[in-house]
């Protein structure tokens, strides 16, 4: 398979506020994402996952390196690539109802009002929020808010979806429901999904391939292809021996690496 989206040795340094000292967060991280695959990137909290994903989304320029989409370097957010933010409660427009939030990308495209109406209804139904169209985001639970964000992302007609720990702030049961929902949508819409998370279980459960980010400065360490068959079931898939093996190995790598970082006294 050809490289659909290619991350080519990107590095990123932040200038620390007052002192002006540079903190290097990413160190020539490279990654190739195939069309229609589900790729997860795991890394511990604060290692630079959001930074990595926002550079891919064209939201911030890398200090060096480049991102290629279909062999063309990107500058600024490309069309058909949508980012789902970690802070879903901050990414929904509080002055717009559920319906109007979902309508936003279509309005920006200048779609006809009748088409918007129809499409909104479809997307809202797809994420299971039918009947809540006229409520405001802040009247919904966290899980429902994230569903609105997903519906709105779909309304932008993406081919690539970038998910930044989209489920880290919802409760455990809702998280499983939404994982299945995202997988369903991914299969139905033939999307390419890049998910970053610190949840090993989630990565193995959802992805075809799992890449690990090392800590400070982060780079892509290893990539494994799980080959766990689809469709995946929230309960039985998690009981498979190969699932458990992948989970254990990944946890080992992540935890060991962190233990090694704490200097012995």
């Amino acid at each position: 398979m050809r490289a659909f989206l290619r991350v080519d040795q990107i590095s990123k340094s932040y200038i620390d506020g007052a002192g002006g000292a540079e903190a290097k967060i990413l160190n020539s991280a490279s990654l190739e994402i195939r069309e229609s695959e589900f790729l997860a990137v795991i890394g511990p909290s604060g290692c630079g996952k959001s930074t990595f994903l926002q550079i891919i989304a064209g939201l911030m320029p890398p200090t060096s390196g480049r991102v290629l989409l279909c062999d063309k370097p990107i500058s600024g957010p490309p069309a058909h690539m949508v980012y789902l933010f970690q802070q879903y409660n901050k990414s929904l427009f509080p002055w717009r109802t559920v319906r109007d939030n979902v309508a936003f990308p279509m309005q920006m495209r200048g779609a006809a009002a009748a088409d918007i109406e129809q499409a909104c209804r479809d997307y809202i139904r797809m994420v299971g929020l039918a009947g809540h169209e006229n409520r405001y985001p802040w009247q919904l639970s966290g899980g429902m808010q994230q569903r609105v964000a997903i519906a709105r992302a779909l309304a932008a007609e993406p081919r690539i979806l970038l998910l930044d720990e989209p489920l880290s702030a919802v409760d455990a049961l809702t998280r499983m429901e939404l994982q299945s929902l995202i997988l369903e949508i991914w299969e139905r819409q033939k999307l390419t999904i890049l998910l970053v998370t610190h949840d090993v279980d989630e990565a193995v459960f959802m992805a075809d391939r799992v890449a690990t980010l090392t800590v400070s400065p982060a780079r892509i360490d290893s990539i494994i292809e799980t080959g766990i068959p689809r469709p995946r079931d929230p309960i039985t898939t998690r009981e498979r021996p190969d699932f458990l093996t992948f989970r254990r190995d990944l946890l080992n790598t992540l935890l060991n690496r962190q233990h090694a970082q704490i200097p012995s006294t």
Binding site: P77, V82, F85, K90, F104, M108, A156
Partner: peptide
């Protein structure tokens, strides 16, 4: 986050 969201939605 609101502004970034709008940017990725091609605004």
């Amino acid at each position: 986050t609101l502004i970034r969201t709008a940017r990725t939605l091609q605004t």
